[in-house]
Amino acid sequence: MIEKPVIEDILGVIVSNERISDYLLVVYGPLNQDVLVSTIRLAESKLKLQQFPQGLISKTKAICAEILQNINKHQFKHDTYQPYLVLGSKDHTLFIYAGNIISEKSKAIITEKLENYLSVKEENFRSFYTNAFKNAVLTEEGNAGLGLLEMFYRSNRNLKYNINKITDNLFSFNLNIELSQQLVPQS
């Protein structure tokens, strides 16, 4: 989780990340629907500019959409910790880092879901994924509860996470997603 104090600190954290050499996009601070949609458009434009394959661009947009919608729906206002999304690449891998504050209740739900997904064998994961969609029920608010599963599936299970305690009731939730599809620029 990136702390607020000054933008130099934020960039310092990002620059020190040895897994990324090219930073394509950094979004930091509170979100709304407009920021969400604009961020995805900007991510798409950056990836097109860098001539990434269309399939990878679509995958990245879908994952970013789920990340940002989760943050938008569940974000907590906090003086020190702000939500963030970082998109970058190194060699033939695209990295998506994201994080936000979550409640203790959300921590339990997220942990249970992700550990459940991690427990599914790779060869069974596509049928697990399609069955989850077949059996999903929308809430009154229109949530399908499938966002984390979508990220997990579209990243070919290359999703890592950590949850750190901030206070008794608040936690920072951080995602690290790798999209290791061939990123050879199209000619």
Binding site: S58, K61, A62, A65, E66, Q69, F133, A136, L138, G142, N143, A144, L146, G147, L149, E150
Partner: peptide, 13 residues
Amino acid sequence: FEYLNTASIHTVV
């Protein structure tokens, strides 16, 4: 489609 969120996928299905 260009892309959809999961709730939209569920609804279009």
